[in-house]
Design a protein around this nucleic acid. Structure first.
Lengths: 243, 243
DNA sequence: CGCACACTTGATGTAGCTCAAGCGGCGTGG
DNA sequence: CCACGCCGCTTGAGCTACATCAAGTGTGCG
């Protein structure tokens, strides 16, 4: 039955049953081709995720991962968080990056040969990859503005709204939307170019000001996005841009 | 100028006579195709550069440009500087970016139709574009580390070595290599997430310490890259990575 | 029950920002 | 040719936001 057909290759746990970044541009037939060539691997929380071999692609099927860049003295920058459906590793773009599982994770890998095989049969694949890369470029532009020009509260507000946008939208019994924060304060700090104490203090302040609740570790609840959006100059931008 | 045989389509003034990012992956025959479809436009210093229409590509042929992101309150982040041969505007990746000519500039534009036409005949084009996008992603990863985790002197040292790497390598009569800094202190500040006084002070300090000379506005002279490289944790990384 | 670990909170330090003069090179106009 | 004014740059003094260092607190797990 056609309505029951899965939106993706069948491995990803993408929120809302949407397809992952690789499957999305492909027609159903191609997805079947894909599913036969995929290799799924699991990693435990905290472990490093192997990168795809040159020319291959890997997609995060389930869990939360991050891409980090580290200096010799251990200073760290978290470049992005990766959610289910995100391309983890776009070919050579990850040379200097380490991919780390934040929670237990399932990774879905497509070898170079498979990419070329599917690419030959379905031009949508390579177009989709360029699209993905361009979307990443836009996102990294936003990130640079955050890192270069925003104050600590602005960064945290931007971050919360970003996590809200990527979350499942689950509502809290006490009202408001739950934002799962599976990563540690230190991960957040390294993502935002702050230190972990500043992250903690700022979240506490937001809580005192009634902007968020922190019912239990690993989650925040946002009652009204309005006040946060006012503090986050980028997200208002984004809303205007999306029209 | 227009009539001479060149390694590229004939418009770009890429240092060392190399081809631009679009021409590079293409065989000579394709470059001829390309040259016939190009449209070159000049902009004066300080003016905004029109983006290519959706699906089109534009390349910086001559001069220095920058891509910036701006907030409503005029805070600015310079995302990249663009040198001759760089792709200025990779399709939709520039939605939220403004492209500004730092010096007088020549831009070389390829319409969507032309991209598709060449792409059909030469698969190298679209592969080259994905490569370009991936290279940009790597570079933006570096930039995030700079913005999120480096001190002001580290940022300036990194910047100087970056500009050195992209420059023509011309040597100063008094010894050392000339680094052309066509952009203002404010541009540098917005590129590095600092303010213009900090940039100025740090450059002055480097000068006092004998790391650089500042013979005339718009240029710096680096005698020995060693001490700067020691201060720039990223560039040492890069050297290790390349080795 | 108690240890470990992540997080919070507090006290203090400081790098870089802000505000405010100077300086100098260049272009304009006498 | 020189005088003047503009603009980008430099330099200084003081401030503040965030980092650093150092306890506490609580939660989950053995």
């Amino acid at each position: 039955m056609q309505g029951q057909e899965r939106p993706s290759c069948g491995i990803c746990e993408v929120a809302g049953g949407k397809a992952c970044a690789v499957c999305r541009p492909l027609p159903a037939a191609a997805r079947a081709d894909l599913a036969a060539m995929l290799e799924a691997t699991r990693y435990r929380a905290g472990s490093e995720i192997d990168k795809a071999a040159a020319g291959g692609i890997s997609v995060l099927a389930a869990g939360l991962a991050l891409a980090e860049r580290r200096l010799a003295d251990q200073r760290r920058q978290v470049v992005t968080f990766r959610f289910p459906g995100d391309v983890l590793c776009l070919d050579s773009a990850t040379d200097r990056l380490r991919l780390v599982a934040v929670t237990p994770v399932t990774v879905c890998r497509l070898s170079r040969a498979a990419v070329e095989e599917i690419g030959r049969r379905h031009a949508e694949l390579s177009e989709g990859l360029l699209q993905t890369a361009c979307r990443e470029l836009v996102q990294l532009g936003d990130r640079m503005l955050v890192l270069g020009r925003l104050s600590a509260p602005e960064r945290i507000a931007t971050f919360l709204l970003e996590m809200l946008a990527r979350g499942s939208g689950e509502t809290d019994p006490g009202g408001g939307t739950i934002v799962r924060l599976a990563m540690s304060r230190e991960d957040i700090a390294d993502y935002l170019g702050l230190n972990l104490e500043t992250v903690s203090r700022t979240l506490s302040r937001f809580k005192r000001q009634g902007l968020i609740r922190l019912p239990k570790p690993g989650r925040a609840v946002i009652g009204d996005t309005g006040p946060l959006a006012v503090m986050a100059p980028l997200s208002t931008d984004r809303i205007q841009g999306d029209g």
